[in-house]
Design a protein around this nucleic acid. Structure first.
Length: 205
DNA sequence: ATGAGGATCCTCT
DNA sequence: GAGGATCCTCATA
């Protein structure tokens, strides 16, 4: 398997999302190898994207999103979960792709040990927090370089996904920017999460 | 299959 | 202080 390079990801998040679909994320944390084929992702831009963590500028939390492409941006949500992104665009310009779901293709036993509540293999990494769960990702991994061969978490190119197999729609759990279909997934995968519209934000009128 | 409600705490206002 | 780029359980169908 060939590792993805930083340059391949230093592009617009929407394009990077297509690069990432079908690619393989490998974790060697805890002395065990778990590999996941990415089947669902979401693009987040900086500045003009109201759903992005970077919409209101640079802060300690979103700092990694402003850095070079190919690095991992991990954040903590809802008081109990972690979500992982791959940074895109060039150093200084914020952008990232949220990794929403994947299929465990290696290390299934260890993945199940990390997520005992999973009722099926397809469910193991079906959802962003479940994905970080099977890979063992948390704030310790925030900022690491996924394109560095020495890194404990690395990204590899996968088999090309036919353009016709890629579907898109509004992002999950997001109540703004519903007009941009920046969620992308591989049609037919049982690991793709079910769509939930964002909470709050009452639609007046 | 789909929906409501709770858990839980970090981040920025 | 408010509010999440979520998951789990339980209910209803």
């Amino acid at each position: 398997m060939r590792m993805l390079t930083r340059d391949e990801l230093a592009i617009d998040p929407v394009d990077a999302a297509h690069v990432l679909l079908g690619s393989v994320l490998e974790s060697r944390l805890g002395g065990e190898v778990v590999r996941v084929k990415l089947v669902e992702v979401e693009a987040y831009r900086g500045g003009d994207d109201p759903a992005s963590h970077c919409y209101r500028g640079r802060t300690p939390r979103n700092d990694v999103m402003f850095g070079p492409a190919g690095h991992l941006y991990v954040y903590f949500v809802y008081g109990m979960h972690f979500c992982a992104n791959v940074v895109s665009l060039v150093d200084g310009v914020p952008g990232a792709v949220l990794l929403r779901a994947g299929e465990v293709i290696e290390g299934e036993d260890f993945a199940k040990a990390r997520r005992p509540s999973a009722r099926s293999t397809a469910e193991l990494a079906k959802g962003p927090a479940r994905l970080t769960g099977v890979l063992g990702l948390d704030r310790e991994q925030n900022g690491i370089d996924l394109t560095d061969p020495g890194s404990p978490v690395r990204l590899f190119a996968g088999d090309p996904v036919p353009e016709g197999a890629i579907r898109s729609g509004p992002r999950v759990g997001v109540a703004v920017a519903m007009d941009v279909p920046w969620r992308f997934w591989i049609d037919g995968s049982k690991a793709v999460s079910t769509y939930r519209r964002g909470g709050k934000r009452v639609v007046v009128r």
